[in-house]
Simulated assay, not measured.
Amino acid sequence: MDFNLKLLFTFFFFTVSLFSGQGSAGGYYSNRHHRSHRLRATKLFVFGDSYVDTGNILVPFSSAQQFPYGITFPGKPSGRFSDGRVLTDFAGKHLGVKSPIPFSIRNEVGEERLKESGINFAFGGTGVFDTSVPLPNMTTQIDLFEQLRHAESGLSNRDVHLSVALVSVSGNDYSFYLATNGSAQGLKPFINSVVNQVMIDLKRIKRLGVKKIVVTGLGPLGCLPIFTAPFSFKQCNQTINSFVQFHNFLLKQAVDKLNKQITNQQHSYSSSSSSSSSSSSKIFILDVYDAFLSLIQGRGSGRVGLLKFKTPLKPCCFGVSSGFNCGSVDEKGNKKFVLCNDPKSAFFWDSVHPTQTGWSLAFSSFTSIL
């Protein structure tokens, strides 16, 4: 990785963590399998970063609390890092539950709302490890879930067993690593440590009673507008994507191994018990990497193939100076960004996050897993 690429990663981290809280969704697993493992979910529990955060970031300097975020839905900034709905919203709708309430406002909505949907513990800008953003990393988010399980929350064991956990693995860990002088030579070992920590987190969620866990790998980070801007939004950075593919390869290997262990444990339980398990326990990976690339490259079938983005790498909301300041204003209140005429015409909303339309189309590739 050359010096200029490292600078891009460094700028990416500080832009995202201070102003928007980027998260990355991606994966490696095929989305056309595992239809037989569907559960009728009663709740959705969400862990991760800004790709799934629906309002936990309440600090005023967050771009998600500024215009024009939320202009498509709900019509004003809501803490979502998009013009409208994000991955969590589409997952909830598909599962037949309301979008889970953000943990930050759980006390404002009451226990009945929790019973209807679940809780979103995701905070934009966080990673599986600590980043410079003083917010709960993945381990701490799971701590909050564990505390909720032990409290008088109205969550029965059956509710949790029939729930789905959505885990969004972040690119923030890698951005923070490079922004704090992590060497390019040490990046691959660091990727190993990130994937190992992800697996620790997934096992812990499973031990807390969630049988079905869906985790995102990394999407094509090299195709984010923050990295395609130097190429006039016409091509992805393949060097970055090669590291992403290494992460996804390791994640798939680790999840495959864990699922084999889970299957063996279930077979052992079934052979030693006269009662059958009520539902299978398994971990799945969303292949957002391929879903995003299909939309960017204008390929795909069905609903994904219906819409061809004219400039898929160009964001709808873009800063007029640095290019990465969607939602920012100067000291006089003047906008420091330009906005496209129609967010539905763009795949990317800002320098790192998809539009509601982008998420909607990408999600159509995930329905067989969820």
Rank of each mutant, 00 (worst) to 15 (best):
G302E: 15
D143T: 13
N56D: 05
V194A: 05
L166Q: 04
P68A: 09
V109L: 12
K310E: 14
F67Y: 14
Q245D: 14
L18P: 00
S30R: 14
V198K: 02
K188E: 15
L307E: 11
G127I: 07
R40M: 05
I226Q: 05
C223Q: 03
T216H: 01
L202H: 07
L339P: 00
S345T: 02
N196S: 15
V320W: 05
T88Y: 04
S360T: 06
D330P: 00
H37I: 01
G124S: 06
F81V: 12
E146V: 14
G70T: 08
T72P: 01
S156F: 03
G171W: 06
K252Q: 15
L144C: 00
G154V: 12
D287L: 00
I119E: 07
I119R: 02
D350K: 13
S270E: 14
H37S: 10
Q65L: 11
M1S: 02
H247W: 07
I119D: 11
S364W: 02
F246P: 00
N334I: 12
L293I: 14
I57Q: 07
V164G: 02
S345N: 13
K76T: 13
G118V: 11
S99C: 14
K115D: 07
S156K: 09
K257P: 01
P230A: 11
T357Q: 14
T72R: 01
Q185R: 12
S63H: 08
L208Q: 10
G209H: 12
G182P: 14
G125D: 08
E112P: 00
L178R: 10
S360L: 13
C223A: 02
I296E: 06
I285R: 01
T140M: 11
N241T: 03
V128S: 06
F324S: 09
P100Q: 13
V109I: 04
R80I: 00
K257Q: 14
A122V: 10
G186I: 02
K93W: 02
G154F: 05
S321M: 07
R80F: 01
S170T: 06
S294P: 01
N56A: 04
S104H: 02
F73C: 08
V244L: 05
S270T: 09
K93D: 08
S301V: 03
N196A: 15
L87A: 10
R35K: 10
N196H: 12
L370C: 05
L187M: 09
Q253P: 01
P74V: 08
K212G: 09
N248L: 13
I240V: 13
P102I: 01
N241W: 04
K6G: 04
T139G: 12
L5C: 03
R40I: 08
